[in-house]
Design a protein around this nucleic acid. Structure first.
Lengths: 185, 185
DNA sequence: GCTCTATTTTGATATATATCTAATTAGATG
DNA sequence: CATCTAATTAGATATATATCAAAATAGAGC
């Protein structure tokens, strides 16, 4: 469902959303450091630091080299920059909830307010009303011109209060009118 | 203890380290949206979404305007950019663990291995040995030249195995030697 | 091979928090 | 003013996870 990017970025945020881990990254920003050294700096036990380093390593933000039995960790800046840059890009973010899902809400509204082709009532909330209006304007052909009578007839098939809906369609700039003639915008 | 920046950035990461909240941000990236709308999009109950929006609002990543009883939320991109940019800056990160704290480890090592001026033993780990050596080289005056006998005497005051330590000091390039004469680098 | 030290793994515990339902608040409408 | 709807708050629960102590692992040096 969610894009690959998504879980990648989510892991990135999860990795850095802990006080100790963020401090570790801070400490590694100036210098590579051993587990014990980090433990002293942050006033934590070695196993705790080891646990955090494992998480950071998993998402590729740090890497390690051994020197005897001591493991010396360092930041992987390329990864850091890559991910931070991605956070800045809105295009990437928009894919977090996919477009297919994106009109789930509209479909729900249509389902809620229609019985077949018949509109049960005109939604009070502007956002919901807009969904209905966008559906309604689809009943008109693009380019074709309609008299007010024709417009009323088309809307009237779906709801008795064609006057209100007609006015709303104009107001929402979905229909245009000039000297008694209507057309889709 | 930690800088103002630090808690700010930590909150930022915490805010975005949840799957639902990241999806909300994604959904808001393309459009402002009501609570109900987000709830449908993410398949969550309204209170849950409300809870997440409150958290995002707290760190300033989203803001809200009312339209009747419906609350319409939108991203605050300036905040988003500001914080993401800050993540990229290493200078800021280095302040996460302050410098005062930064030599805590060295002081601990010195405390662990010295009894007064007397070195209990030579640390096996290279990183710890280096701390001792840097302390030791401070016993020599910068610029002054020493015979090997003098060097041995100075080191010998702190540990019997002056030969090993002398060799280590050279090896670590803290002391230099030429034709039997030693000096601080 | 034994010992020492640095790290990691395991297991336990306590805290944080995401989610839900139910109750409450607050606008809007008749 | 009663009612309806959208949102929030309160309360409950279950899951996740940060932390530590103890045990296991793995190099280094004797």
């Amino acid at each position: 469902m969610a894009s690959v990017e998504f879980s990648r970025i989510l892991s990135f945020f999860k990795a850095l959303s802990d006080e100790s881990r963020l401090k570790i990254v801070g400490a590694l920003a100036s210098n590579e450091r051993s587990v014990e050294e980090l433990a002293t700096l942050l006033d934590l036990r070695a196993p705790t630091v080891s646990h955090h380093l494992a998480k950071l390593k998993e998402v590729g933000l740090v890497d390690m080299r051994s020197e005897g039995t001591t493991h010396i960790y360092h930041l992987v800046m390329s990864e850091m920059r890559l991910l931070a840059k991605r956070v800045l890009s809105l295009d990437a973010m928009e894919t977090f909830t996919e477009d297919v899902v994106a009109d789930a809400w509209e479909r729900k509204i249509l389902g809620d307010f229609f019985v077949g082709q018949r509109l049960k009532e005109i939604p009070a909330s502007r956002k919901k009303r807009e969904v209905i209006l966008r559906w309604l304007v689809e009943r008109f052909s693009a380019g074709k011109r309609y008299t007010e009578k024709e417009v009323n007839a088309i809307i009237g098939k779906h709801h008795p209060d064609f006057a209100t809906l007609r006015r709303e369609l104009i107001c929402a700039k979905l229909l245009a009118r000039e000297s008694g003639i209507y057309w889709r915008t």
